[in-house]
């Protein structure tokens, strides 16, 4: 295996995992409340900044990461309760526009509190140590950490949705919120959990991105939008789709970066988005119904 391809695979998988995490939160929110969230990028910024603050205060990954996840879970839930409980459901389209406003507000709050500079975070990984896999392919400890956490997050979400009472209620709300309410499911509470998961996974994506690069908040925010091609490719309402779509777009962008040039990466992803819309609007795994949304 030559070095270029090895590079594509390792970079593509890592970027893909971050897209997948942004995407899975998006999908959970979309399924539970029908809202197309343009605010995932803002949740990433918040997660990254909160974690960076904790890390600078001396808390390592073992404490900082769980604390960040809990805080993001709460923020996501509270925002649903305050903003979207009133308008989601019957007016999903209006709610989707509202997420644009929400995204701007959250980003501005983050910028005003923490400033627009590159997010400072202490070095938590030794980038020199690499794990050799096969041929030229090797992964840094950070790469393995990113991929491992993504796998854990997906396993927890999939098992949680399919094997727990809360997950069953979330799927009921996703399928038909009105009927769920008449069946005794507390729709608002369940939707709050969905938004909490959306915030939590976006926050995790933000932290993982932060650890690998040295981004400023605005760059993190725009990555939230850059994940849309991946989300659409996988299917807006499919959880496995968000993983597959994320990885595919990640690999594609890495390949473009290596063989064509970095400036073509975003435009390449968006051309895929247009192609998906033309050829298979429900994505690889999405249900056909959402084509009519």
């Amino acid at each position: 295996m030559n070095a270029d391809i090895a590079n594509v695979i390792s970079n593509g998988l890592v970027t893909g995992c971050i897209y997948a995490l942004i995407g899975v939160g998006f999908v959970v929110v979309f399924r539970a409340t029908g809202v197309v969230s343009f605010a995932q990028g803002a949740f990433m910024v918040l997660g990254a900044l909160i974690f960076a603050g904790l890390a600078r205060a001396g808390l390592g990954l073992a404490v900082g990461l769980p604390v960040m996840l809990v805080v993001m879970l709460v923020i996501g839930g509270v925002i649903y309760r305050l903003v979207f409980a009133r308008i989601a459901g019957a007016e999903a389209f209006v709610a989707s526009i509202a997420t644009v406003g929400l995204g701007i507000v959250l980003e501005v709050i983050a910028l005003l509190i923490w400033g627009p500079e590159v997010i400072a975070v202490p070095q938590l990984f030794n980038f020199r140590s690499r794990v050799h896999v096969v041929g030229e392919l090797n992964f840094s400890a950070l790469n393995l950490f990113v991929m491992g956490l993504t796998v854990v997050a997906f396993v927890v979400i999939v098992v949680g949705l399919n094997r727990t009472p809360v997950g069953l209620r979330m799927r009921a709300v996703a399928n038909n919120p009105q009927l769920a309410a008449y069946s005794g499911v507390r729709v608002v509470r369940t939707s709050m959990i969905a938004w909490g998961i959306g915030g939590l996974t976006a926050g995790l994506a933000g932290v993982l991105y932060l650890l690998g690069s040295q981004p400023d908040p605005v760059t993190v925010y725009s990555l939230g939008l850059a994940a849309f091609p991946a989300i659409l490719l996988g299917g807006l309402d499919s959880i496995p789709g968000s993983l597959v779509g994320g990885i595919l777009i990640g690999l594609l962008q890495a390949a473009i970066g290596v063989f064509v040039g970095g400036e073509w990466q975003d435009v390449g992803a968006y051309c895929v988005l247009l192609a998906v819309l033309l050829l298979r609007p429900q994505g690889i795994f999405g249900s056909a119904e959402i084509g009519r949304l």
């Binding site: 509202a98 644009v100 701007i104 507000v105």
Partner: peptide
């Protein structure tokens, strides 16, 4: 920017 976003939210709500 923040005021734009806030106005949008308030109007929609």
């Amino acid at each position: 920017n923040g005021i734009y976003g806030l106005l949008l939210l308030l109007v929609l709500l």
